[in-house]
């Protein structure tokens, strides 16, 4: 019986805790008017998509035992550069479609740059990305202090429009996770990322190109954050200077609630996917009940605290089971 109990608790804690939490939230939500409608749930997912993209980025970076604080700035910086280039700098050369393609590439580039700085020069990534967080936000405020409210429909298409009544943003988000899942579970690179996070020296001696793979993780994180920015700009049909500002804390909350370890190498994509939905539903339920914004912040503070506690519990559980 104890062995079975252990196996069950391990299964719950390591893989399915977040889904349990989701189930509880949904059961709670059903009693709230307006929650269990298709339209509401689609809106929940729509609003969750940009956060989900950033969480994916942080997930990858935490897996290799690094950190990227600047994702929320990349989230604003990439669309801003693409939009300003499209509207002001090179309007003849860059049509809206090209700007859409350019946006994630800019994110990829800034992620790769920060990653190279941290990895090649062996500077703490926390400090490097703290600096790029400020740098990019400053650039955004400088370029579009008043924001841009008239955007070509091609640029906002992915974030704004629907296919078959479902916001395209949700498809983009799911597609991004699907690709990431294939990479993490079925691709050589994914195995190498997990190996690096678990034991970097062992990975190096096993012939893994550690530096290149780590920089790639930073770059993909930037890419994902930029896609999130593109979707958010489309959803709001505008870009403002404080787009995503302060959201990195919620990104951390989602990644850790999803079971990603701060000490590297541990985490599952399915977990962080569930965590993003959990956060979106909590927000939605508070909206529906009509809770004040200040109280909402307190609730999320509490959620973060619980997430951290659960994450530590999970580590301890895993350790205790390994011992027995």
């Amino acid at each position: 019986m104890p062995a079975q109990f252990h196996r069950l608790s391990r299964l719950l804690f390591e893989r399915h805790l977040i889904w349990l939490l989701l189930l509880v939230l949904v059961l709670f939500g059903i009693n709230i008017r307006g929650f269990a409608t298709a339209q509401n749930l689609l809106n929940v997912m729509w609003a969750a998509a940009p956060l989900g993209c950033m969480v994916l980025g942080l997930f990858l970076v935490l897996l290799i035992k690094e950190v990227d604080l600047s994702l929320e700035s990349t989230f604003a910086f990439s669309p801003t550069i693409a939009i300003v280039a499209m509207l002001n700098w090179l309007p003849e050369v860059i049509p809206p479609i090209l700007a859409v393609i350019l946006t994630p590439l800019i994110g990829f580039a800034v992620g790769a740059a920060a990653g190279a700085f941290a990895v090649k020069l062996r500077v703490n990534a926390f400090l490097v990305t703290l600096a790029t967080l400020l740098l990019m936000r400053g650039a955004v405020v400088y370029l579009i202090p008043e924001g841009v409210y008239y955007l070509p429909p091609e640029y906002t298409y992915l974030g704004e429009q629907r296919w078959l009544g479902i916001p395209i943003a949700i498809f983009v988000w799911l597609l991004l996770y699907l690709i990431a899942w294939v990479i993490m579970e079925r691709h050589r690179i994914g195995k190498e990322i997990y190996a690096i996070g678990n034991n970097e020296e062992a990975a190096l001696l096993a012939g893994v190109k550690v530096q290149r793979t780590k920089i790639l993780c930073f770059a993909i994180a930037g890419f994902a954050a930029a896609v999130g920015g593109l979707l958010e700009v489309g959803r709001l049909q505008s870009v403002v200077a404080d787009l995503g500002e302060g959201s990195i804390l919620m990104v951390f909350a989602g990644t850790i609630l999803g079971g990603t370890s701060l000490s590297g190498g541990i985490g599952r994509l399915s977990g962080v996917f569930g965590a993003v939905i959990v956060i979106a539903i909590i927000e939605n339920i508070m909206n529906l009940i009509g809770i004040e914004p200040s109280i909402r912040q307190m609730v999320f503070g509490g959620v973060l605290l619980i997430a951290i506690y659960l994450a530590s519990l999970q580590d301890r559980f895993a350790m205790r089971i390994d011992k027995s």
Binding site: K191, Y194, N199, E201, A202, A203, G265
Partner: peptide, 13 residues
Amino acid sequence: ERQAVIPGRSIVE
């Protein structure tokens, strides 16, 4: 342990 084992992963990996 320090230089070769990738602890959290499977024998396959």
